[in-house]
Structures are given as structure tokens and as C-alpha cells.
């Protein structure tokens, strides 16, 4: 069963199409990365899923229900812009948000303490949130969003503003959730996180879906390539069946005698290496690395992201 289902969802702000006919589904127990450039419509989409905003047209179903509020106890949400009540104690605020999701007050409090302790905030449990640093406040808020043990957790930019150590703590939290069969949907700009953690990637730009699939599938969208450097004539490589194109390496890394070799998906880079030996091409560099999600992102969104309008 799908935990979350969007069908041709559109959100208009006046003339502006923030989200444009977006459809996707999220499977139970998966970790889905929601990627896209600034202003792509990620936050708007998440807000619509949570029922904070109403879509202009289209249908959203959360656990089969049209409004997330009907299943509020099963959904957890961390908004993009983070804030807490300054005068409240950490444990109180975590417990309060859990109580708002239907947990009874005593259980909420004990669970809040337990969570704060488990993720290294025990000493701050009785402190007011104004005493916390920004990153710690954010951690408290992440905990507040999962304190009612939701089945679906939606995190909007959870990693931004966290130092590397706390980014790891957050990854741990997400993995813990997934390990217990919870469904996680999070948006991010940091491709490494998405690549490491996600079962699935959803990439949107200008409100439209550009890609929807697993990470390996995403990586396959850009041709595999090699970078080789040699003073010798490399023309014979063109004849290889696996080679699609051969061109001087462009961009910052450009040096005379540096070449980019684009390969067919099925081909083996070793064939190129073997061919080089065969033709006596002496290599100064033979660089074969799998493409990263970063490259996928730039490749798919690239030129558009630069001109994307900020709202």
C-alpha cells in the first residue's frame, strides 16, 4: 500500500505555478529524497501534503485520507524554517508537540525525555530552548517531530544548519526510523545525504517532476565516462564499440591532452584500458569513477536552476 499518493497536484499563486501537475507515490518503509533547486516547489508540496496549504487542483492521499489532519497522529513534520517557543523547556516542547499529535500527556513527557537522552540532549532537557544553539534547537525540533512515533515522517531540509557530527546524528535518527519500518520523506540540497540514505529519489524543478526512481537509476541517467590523459594520439579509441564520444575535457579541469571518453551504458571501462595498451597509448591518467548524484542533479537541473526565480 502507498503511504502517500499525489495525483496531478497543482498549486497556483496568482499566475505563478509553484507546483505543476505533480504526481508521485511513496511506498511504506522507504526513505525518499525530495530534491530540487531553490524555488522548485518542494516546501509548497510538503505543506500541501500536510494539509497546511490546499492544492489548487489535484488529489493528495495520506494513508488513504484526503487530509493529513485526519491522520495527524501517524504523520510527523519538520518544517524548513525552524523555530521553538523560547521560554519553554526542551522536554516540555517535545512533549507538547507529541501531545498535539494525540499522545497522552504523561506518555508524551516520558517519551520526550527518552528521546532527548538517546540523542545526546539529556543535559538540556530541563533548559529553556533559548539557551540552545541553533543546531541543538534544530535537533530538539527533529525529536519533537517524531516523538509521537509517526509512521510517516516528513522532514524539510533537515540537514541544513547542522555541523557534520550532528548531521550524522540526524542520519542515525532517520536510519533508526527506517529500521523500524517507518516511512521517511525528506528534502535536501546535500546530494551526499540523498545518495547515502535514500531508496528513492524524487527530483523536481519549477514545480514539475524531472526524475522519480532509485539512486542507481538516477546515476544511469547520465552516460558513464572516463577521463584519460595522454600525450599520444588517442584516435584509435574511437573505434571501440563501447565508446560513444571522445572529446577534450571541458571546464576547469581542462589541460592539453586531457580527454573525456563517454561510454555506452553496457560497456566495460576495462576495454578502453586494454585498447590503450594494445595501441601503445601511454597513459598519464586513467580516471574511472561512477557518476555522483551531484552530477545527476547538475545534469538534469543545471541551466534551469541558475535562472530559477526565487520567491
Amino acid at each position: 500500500m502507498h503511504v502517500l499518493e499525489l495525483e496531478r497536484v497543482t498549486k497556483l499563486y496568482g499566475e505563478f505555478r509553484a507546483v505543476d501537475e505533480l504526481s508521485f507515490t511513496v511506498r511504506e518503509g522507504s526513505i525518499t529524497g525530495f530534491l530540487g533547486p531553490n524555488g522548485a516547489g518542494k516546501t509548497t508540496t510538503l505543506r500541501m501534503i500536510l494539509g497546511i496549504l490546499k492544492p489548487t487542483t489535484g488529489k493528495i492521499a495520506v494513508f488513504g485520507q484526503p487530509s493529513a489532519l485526519d491522520v495527524r497522529s501517524r504523520v510527523g513534520y519538520l518544517p524548513e524554517e525552524k523555530g521553538l517557543y523560547k521560554k519553554m523547556k526542551c522536554v516540555e516542547i517535545v512533549a507538547y508537540f507529541a501531545a498535539l499529535k494525540g499522545v497522552d500527556r504523561r506518555t508524551a513527557k516520558s517519551r520526550a525525555l527518552e528521546l532527548l537522552e538517546r540523542y545526546g540532549l539529556k543535559d538540556f532537557a530541563q533548559k529553556r530552548t533559548e539557551a540552545l544553539s541553533k543546531g541543538m534547537g534544530q535537533k530538539v525540533q527533529v525529536l519533537a517531530s517524531i516523538a509521537h512515533d509517526p509512521e510517516l515522517v516528513i522532514l524539510d531540509e533537515p540537514f541544513s544548519g547542522l555541523d557534520p557530527v550532528n548531521q550524522q546524528v540526524l542520519e542515525e535518527i532517520v536510519r533508526d526510523l527506517a529500521a523500524r519500518g517507518r516511512t521517511v520523506l525528506f528534502s535536501t540540497h546535500v546530494m551526499q545525504h540523498a545518495e547515502r540514505m535514500c531508496d528513492r529519489i524524487l527530483l523536481i524543478a519549477r514545480g514539475k517532476k524531472l526524475f522519480d526512481g532509485t539512486v542507481p537509476e538516477a546515476l544511469r541517467t547520465i552516460p558513464r565516462r572516463l577521463v584519460i590523459e595522454s600525450a599520444d594520439d588517442i584516435a584509435p579509441l574511437r573505434a571501440l564499440p563501447g565508446v560513444l564520444a571522445l572529446s577534450p575535457l571541458a571546464g576547469d579541469a581542462h589541460k592539453p591532452g586531457t580527454w573525456e571518453v563517454r561510454l555506452r551504458e553496457s560497456s566495460d571501462p576495462q576495454e578502453v584500458l586494454a585498447s590503450c595498451f594494445e595501441h601503445g597509448i601511454r597513459l598519464r591518467r586513467f580516471d574511472h569513477s561512477d557518476p555522483s548524484l551531484h552530477e545527476v542533479f547538475v545534469n538534469l537541473v543545471g541551466p534551469e536552476a541558475r535562472e530559477a526565480s526565487y520567491r
Binding site: 505543506r47 500536510l50 494539509g51 497546511i52 493529513a68 489532519l69 495527524r72 504523520v75 513534520y77 519538520l78 518544517p79 524554517e81 525552524k82 523555530g83 521553538l84 517557543y85 508537540f97 498535539l100 499529535k101 525540533q141 519533537a144 517531530s145
Partner: peptide, 9 residues
Amino acid sequence: RIIEVLLSS
């Protein structure tokens, strides 16, 4: 922006 969390609940 606490309001957003509140409105999700």
C-alpha cells in the same frame, strides 16, 4: 515559524 508545526497538528 512554530506555526507550521502547529498547523500540521
